[in-house]
Structures are given as structure tokens and as C-alpha cells.
Amino acid sequence: MTAPPDDCLARNEWICGDYLSSRRGILMDATIQHLQLTAASVLLGLAIALPLALLARRRRWAAAPVLGVTTVLYTIPSLAMFSLLLPVYGLSATLVVAGLVLYSLTLLVRNILAGLRAVPEETRQAARGLGYGPLRLLLTVELPLALPTAMAGLRIATVSAVSLVTVGAIVGFGGLGNLIYSGMNTYFKAQVLTASVLCVVIAVAADLLLLGVQRLLTPWTRRTA
């Protein structure tokens, strides 16, 4: 009741409305960077994982090396992964995206492959009997049936990516992680808590969004559920 600048920022409180209003710009920029890094890495990961999964499905010899390499990549801790890419990409956003792409590959390839493998052989034969060629079979029968499993992988990959972007703060491109990192160095409690909570909010929102997309894309699964 005595200190002159007696607001929650001066008192360094965990929860602080003044922080939200005075640093709105910084928070917005960090959130946007967070979303961009996540979206870029998940989309790129998907673009690489789909052909890999198809290759592993079509060519028996390819399955073991594809799954093996992606599993090894997944075992490498995030900080080490980003560090290993440093000589290639330098201190850049590309480094963070590349690292996250490598992580998402494991989850995506594994789930897409599991989804494709779970398509019943009878279904495939029925489609062939109706005169479906290989491409049409893949696009209109196999991929839609693999979708629920593949989407489960995509959701896990996205949520993981949202969380791992924060580690990108080590190279200065960590979205909300940058705020956590600088908040740590300046002992700024409100900034660390706000950025952390926003990370979780983004992860949950992305998960729900993808769940909604999955429901829209696979209306036939709802009847059985």
C-alpha cells in the first residue's frame, strides 16, 4: 500500500492483466510466429510423410528402412536435433522448421502406414472388381479408409510441434518460446506464465480443429461410433 508504481508488473506477479494490455503487440507477434512455424513444419512433414508411407506400403523392402530411420530421428532430443542442424541452416527459422519436420515424420509415416495396412483386403478386391485402377483405388478407397488413423497421427504431430517450437528459442525462433526464454533471463513471471498458457491453448485449439476436420472428412465413422 506504499510503493508508488504499485501495479502487478512492478510486483512481478504471475497473473497480470497489465501485462496483457501493455505487451499485446509482442504477444501477437510471438503467437503468429508460433503458428507459422508449427503450420509450416506440420504441412511440410505431411508432404514428405505421405510419399514415404506409400513407398513403404508398395515396396516391401522400403518399409523397414523408412520406419527405422524415422524412429531413430524421433529418439534424438529436440535441443540436440536443432543443434545438429545448425551448420546446415544457421540461426534461422528454417532450422526450427527442418527439425520439427524430422520429428513429425515418425508419427505421420507410422500412422499413415498403419491406416493403409488396415484397409481390408476384401475392400481392395471389391474395388478392383468394379474396375478401379491402382491410382483410383488409392485415392478413392485406400486413402479415405486410412484417414482416421492418419488424422490421429497428424493430431499428435501437431500438438507435439506446438510444444517443441518453444525450444527454437535457442536459435531465436521459438515463437512464444522466445518470450519464455527472455522472461526466464529477466525473471519476468507474468511473461513466462502467459506465454506458457498460450502454448497450451494453441495446442488444444489445433487438436480440436483437426478433430473437427476429421469429422467432416470422415462422416461414415460417426454412425458406428
Binding site: 499428435i156 510444444s163 519464455i180 526466464m184 506458457s196
Partner: peptide, 18 residues
């Protein structure tokens, strides 16, 4: 498991540090 995945490890480390 889902919650563990959504919460950034780095954030928890810093929060605990503070």
C-alpha cells in the same frame, strides 16, 4: 499422455525455475 504432450517441457522448466 495427451496433456503431457501439449504442455511444453521448456515452459514447465522455466516456470519451476521462477
Amino acid at each position: 499422455s495427451n496433456i503431457g504432450r501439449a504442455v511444453p517441457t521448456f515452459a514447465v522448466l522455466v516456470l519451476l525455475l521462477l
